[in-house]
Write a protein that binds this DNA or RNA. Sequence first.
DNA 1: TGTAAGTAACTTAGCGCTGAGATACTTTAT
DNA 2: ATAAAGTATCTCAGCGCTAAGTTACTTACA
Lengths: 165, 165
Amino acid sequence: MADHVDLVLEQWRARRPDIDPSPMGVIGRLSRLSALFDAELRRNFAKYELDRASFDVLATLRRSNAEHSLTPAGLMHSSMVTSGAISQRLDRLETRGLVTRTPSETDGRGVQVTLTAKGLKLIDKVLPTHVDTEAQLLSGLSTPERDHLAALLRTLLESLGDKRD
Amino acid sequence: MADHVDLVLEQWRARRPDIDPSPMGVIGRLSRLSALFDAELRRNFAKYELDRASFDVLATLRRSNAEHSLTPAGLMHSSMVTSGAISQRLDRLETRGLVTRTPSETDGRGVQVTLTAKGLKLIDKVLPTHVDTEAQLLSGLSTPERDHLAALLRTLLESLGDKRD
DNA sequence: TGTAAGTAACTTAGCGCTGAGATACTTTAT
DNA sequence: ATAAAGTATCTCAGCGCTAAGTTACTTACA
């Protein structure tokens, strides 16, 4: 049994036997899987005229609180993109009537982003199909394997300083 | 102990208790790690006036064979991007004198891409620092944990049809 | 042999993101 | 009270990618 990364590792060992390429065995596979997952999840989003960026914002608002409401800064922290990207995502979602921007009552600089009824309806329709797609993508592993994988990835994230907030 | 994804899972269980969000425990962490790794590797590439795209091409040529030479199609298959992206990457690398494009002798449509001496020197300088950076990123796991993680990721890649070629 | 289908590489419009910077408001310190 | 520093959001030029389409060549077959 061998995947693409096994070939790459073999090639490196042949051409540069002085270098231990084993870290690529983890990081190469991880980034390859990430790309494959992304492509597949995108196919599902497209059925609902969504992309990853829009889905991320809608889903983050949906799960955040009962009001489905956050600041742009809150969305930024959750999404790992810059503030400029959030502004542009919100422009698109606002144009489509899926979210609203309301000035903060307490802070003149602040804005509150809230799911509209239309946005709520859409994300609640897409979410189950999204989770189903993810489950499909993981169906090559048994449940204990999946749990073990999640635990290893969590250890790694924690070692890199990933925090709850 | 909890990472950012644990928080997300809790939020989903609170807002949508009818949906089992556990697939996100794997896929969410995986894509988060991929983004963190990418950012850190980029910092290293930047020291050598490289980006991920250029590094990928140079490294693929370096490990491919003794001539350090492939077709654009070969580079495309290895890199998971489109043919248009490869054309543009090669434009940039050719302009910098790191690779050459030579017409194929047997196929009038074909092109052979080869590392120049300058390109070879650069990739051989960057490669050890790249692997070191990767090893650093994985230092939160023990060696057996790393091996186990690589094995689980390989199983998953194989289940998704990832092949050696 | 001629032509249709297939293949390799390239071109380009459009897209979303980054990084830098601008704007407007708030907090802190004097 | 006022200036300086800090914060929240937005704007925009530039970048690399995708998707669609083009060009040039090769292969298969009628």
